[in-house]
Amino acid sequence: MSSLLLAEQVLNGLQLGIMLFLMAAGLTLVFGVMGLINLAHGSLYMIGAFAAAATAAATGSFFLGLIAALAASAAAGALVEVTVIRRLYARDHLDQVLATFALILIFSEGTRWVFGSFPLYLSIPPVLSGPVTLPFGIEYPLYRLALIVAGLAIAGGLFLLVGRTRLGIRIRAGESDREMIAALGVDISRLYTIVFALGAALAGLAGALVGAIQSVQVGMGEPVLILAFVTIVIGGIGSIKGALVGALLVGLTDTLGGLFLPAAFALFMEPSAAASTGAALSSMLIYILMAVILILRPSGLYGARA
């Protein structure tokens, strides 16, 4: 196995991890502040991808598509929070799961009704197309590299927002004691809407960015949602830092597992059997990783201890 192939797969793992972070950050904010299990988060990812693809097709601008993805997913998130989610805060988690699962079906069928059953395609902008040569002769797609850089910049901005701004103070206070900040005069309903819209915007942005390297289709958010839940469980529910570390761990484990396991099994198995066995086991690695971390740290890597 060449070092260039290994370096390329590490970058692929970082890119997957950064996109998972954009999903998981909103999910962990919503759960940490509101105590809400939101299964419809993947649908907001899908809405962002469809909004970006439709806008880019109509205007010819990929970057206007990104703006449309942010606006559409944030608006959808705010609307859902005001009309549906707000009635679920005092309910138990089973009611939340059932209600947000119903939202998945509504969003999927609504998207299919508006855009049809056929996938849409979002083209990479010419300025970001083609490969770029990195140190040591590594050639890597410029767009995927831009995703890594943009994701890290968004992560830095999110850390500053939560840690250094008045809104961030309210978010952290709402996570710790929502009754107290409500008693101090903070409009808790407005805060919840802002947090939910922020999480939705991050999910929609992730969907739009990933939509340029895969097809945009109905149901594309559900597989990513599962990985996002794994990510926040590994990192610790409610922790933005944990979401970033967990996302990078999941991305690298998934990518490098698919690279190393078939090669390892090929040392003592036939190539075809090694490939199938390695592929099957590599898809289980992130869940094995989650189980090991939960055994060692039941609250996750950066979760608050009871």
Rank of each mutant, 00 (worst) to 15 (best):
I85F: 07
A58I: 06
F50Q: 02
A68Q: 11
A75C: 12
A78V: 12
A57I: 02
A78P: 08
L79D: 08
M46S: 12
M46D: 05
V80R: 00
A58P: 09
T55P: 11
G77D: 08
T59H: 13
E81G: 01
A69C: 11
A54R: 12
G60M: 09
G42E: 00
A54T: 15
F50K: 00
A78E: 07
V80L: 15
A75Q: 08
G65S: 11
A72M: 14
A52P: 04
T59M: 12
A54D: 14
A56L: 04
F63P: 01
V80H: 04
G77R: 03
A51I: 03
G35K: 02
G77I: 07
A76W: 07
I85D: 00
A74S: 15
A78I: 12
V82Q: 14
A52C: 13
H41P: 10
N38S: 05
T83C: 10
A78F: 14
A52V: 05
F63C: 01
S61D: 14
A53W: 05
G35P: 04
T59W: 13
N38C: 02
I47T: 13
I85S: 00
F62I: 10
L64H: 08
E81K: 01
A49P: 06
V84C: 05
V84Q: 03
A51L: 06
E81L: 04
I37H: 05
A57R: 14
A69R: 05
A58Q: 14
T83S: 15
A52S: 15
L66V: 12
H41C: 10
L36G: 01
L44F: 14
M34R: 01
V80F: 14
L36F: 10
V84G: 00
A76Y: 07
A76I: 09
I85Q: 00
L36R: 01
T55F: 10
A54N: 11
I47M: 13
I37R: 03
T83K: 09
I85L: 15
M34Y: 08
R86C: 01
M46L: 07
I47R: 00
L70H: 08
A68E: 12
A54P: 02
A52F: 07
A71K: 07
A58F: 11
A52G: 11
T83M: 14
A51Y: 03
A76E: 11
L66H: 07
V82N: 10
A74M: 15
Y45R: 07
G48K: 06
L36A: 02
G60N: 10
G48M: 08
A53M: 10
M46I: 05
I37L: 15
